[in-house]
Design a protein around this nucleic acid. Structure first.
Lengths: 349, 349
DNA sequence: CTGAAAGCGCTTACAG
DNA sequence: CTGAAAGCGCTTACAG
């Protein structure tokens, strides 16, 4: 005889009550006396009853799962150290709630929207995280249409109907610029991220602002797609300039590491000839030579808080947005005093 | 009036048949005439019917989802470029099948086993991928006990009851050693991975074998946990040796990059004073200076094939194991001829 | 080839 | 405070 998993009926029978009452006890609903509830829960425990997720899903239209849809080309996904850490944070908040995370990695916009529709249509998730916010993001309309609760990572500009969890990264970029200015740099460039992504755009505009405040020319900016390859190319273009920068602020660590590689290949000493800052504080950034000055945030914490916020939104219908501690500058060895003769780099080897 | 999603009852009514027949048509079961099936499917299309996943789950005990449980400390997860790429590959095979991926990231062994139990008990997934195979892996027993279908990544030694998808990485390590030997190196060290993990152990033993075959001393090996931090420490220990190696074979790229950083910090020229090889062929490895000679595999492909194999196993009860093309050596700039005076490095700057 | 009915394991009004 | 029953939307024997 196969070992049949106990059902609510078994619990009801051995506890001598109706199935309905077991359900009430399970869900902490009013209408069942404390003693009865206690007895029911005991019996359930003895029998090893685990209420069936599918059955609960069918009657409550709840999936007890959260969704994360990541739109990245497969070749690039590994370069981004953010998601694994973010997901680890999300998990830490979900496990204790008995929820699961459904993850989708999609290559393009069309697949992305289709995935949200499928996730909602299949009742696969009760809510989703919205990452990589873009300007005029089509996803807001789709999610509203689907009635799918969502929490945004970062502040969706021009929308106050969706709770968000934000890390202020403008502060980090500003302090990187200030740090470089205090070291005597005046020609500072920015290898920006994707301008279509809000956090890319925001880092860029805070660079712009910080440079203006220092009375410096903020025009040395190159947009990228956040990939190491783009970071290397941008660095080459900047260094090919007739009047090249003495410092480069990168929008993420992989690009900064690629930039470091380009500089070294050209025989430039970092930081003697060129100062470099990254963004994210990835593990590896501390082990390249010279160790990268970077701007650190805490993606694990971010994931945990985002998950809690989404659960709150799903449970109660509304949730407060959260502002996490701002990203902060971690000064290591890749930044130093501006070269005295800032117009001419050391000759290439 | 709210827009109610159509159900099987709606389809049956407008098609003028019973619910049972609609179900048969949907699931391609015999017993429904071609014309009737066609008409039913048309009506379903017109109505925009999407069969309810929860209802199907409840009656078939199928979740239409696959599970991946990753055991990593949150701090380390970002350093591993394997999983995001692997997951992207899995997704590409799942989307067309209407399946989803449930992901769990857990910190330790206890949470790992608990997660498999919950996933199975909740009928959250129909099968799982088994990664980071270990010696005497407790998971085999638990999965068998739970009756949860699984596909292993890499060959589970001493088990022929579980299908696996394997990339032969011994070949890659061997060719790295041969490459270095052909460049005149004789003191070659290995910064190995976690000896408790099968792929760590396998890379180590193939290093051992390749060295012996070349008639060289294979004893310069240091175990690590695969982290950049461990990679840096191991490199320091090796270089502190009174008779240091002229080449180091690392078990993954992050450790190799960290090792490169250590070497450069000590004023060693790579590859003039020290040759270095990585493992994985990560995006960033091509952009450090000098560009890393590494051993590439294709984790995206791996994910796709593993997903197909798992679906096959779930669908038919058995699946053939797959051997993927072996990892191959990608020679770039971090390896070069052994220094002529191999006993003494260039003086530190 | 087709229909009517029971069942999957929960939740939730509705009576008492 | 408790019980009996209908319902969630499918699937699957069982009859015809």
């Amino acid at each position: 005889m196969a070992i049949r998993k106990p059902t609510i009926t078994d619990v009801a029978r051995t506890a001598g009550v109706s199935k309905g009452l077991v359900s009430f006890a399970l869900n902490d609903k009013p209408g069942v006396s404390p003693e009865t509830r206690k007895r029911i829960l005991e019996v359930a425990g003895d029998l090893g009853w685990r209420p069936s997720l599918s059955a609960r899903s069918l009657s409550t239209r709840t999936s007890f799962a959260l969704g994360l849809v990541i739109r990245r080309k497969a070749e690039v996904i590994s370069a981004d150290p953010f998601f694994p850490a973010f997901i680890a944070g999300v998990e830490s908040a979900l496990t204790e709630e008995g929820r699961a995370l459904v993850l989708s990695v999609v290559p393009d916009a069309e697949a992305e929207l289709r995935t949200y529709r499928t996730l909602a249509g299949d009742n696969r998730v009760d809510g989703v995280f919205l990452t990589d916010l873009r300007e005029n993001d089509e996803r807001f309309a789709v999610l509203a249409d689907l009635g799918l609760p969502a929490v945004a990572l970062g502040h969706p500009t021009g929308r106050d109907d969706m709770p968000f969890v934000q890390v202020d990264d403008t502060h980090g970029i500003a302090s990187a610029v200030e740090h470089l200015v205090s070291l005597g740099h005046s020609r500072i460039a920015h290898v920006a991220g994707d301008p279509m992504m809000m956090h890319g755009g925001r880092r860029r505009s805070s660079f712009d602002e910080a440079m203006r405040e220092a009375g410096l020319d903020p025009s040395l900016v190159i947009d990228t797609d956040f990939s190491a390859s783009n970071g290397a190319d941008a660095t080459k273009r900047l260094l090919d300039n007739s009047h090249p920068p003495t410092a480069i602020v990168y929008a993420n660590d992989p690009m900064a590491i690629a930039g470091l590689g380009v500089a070294q290949q050209r025989g430039l000493r970092v930081p003697a000839d060129l100062s470099i800052t990254g963004f994210d504080g990835t593990d590896i950034s501390g082990y390249v030579f010279p160790a990268l000055t970077t701007i650190t945030s805490d993606p694990v914490e971010w994931g945990m808080v985002a998950a809690r916020t989404l659960l709150e939104l799903i449970g109660s219908g509304s949730a407060e947005s959260v502002e996490l501690p701002p990203a902060s500058l971690l000064i290591r060895a890749s930044t130093g005093p501006a070269p005295s003769d800032s117009g001419h780099h050391a000759a290439h080897r």
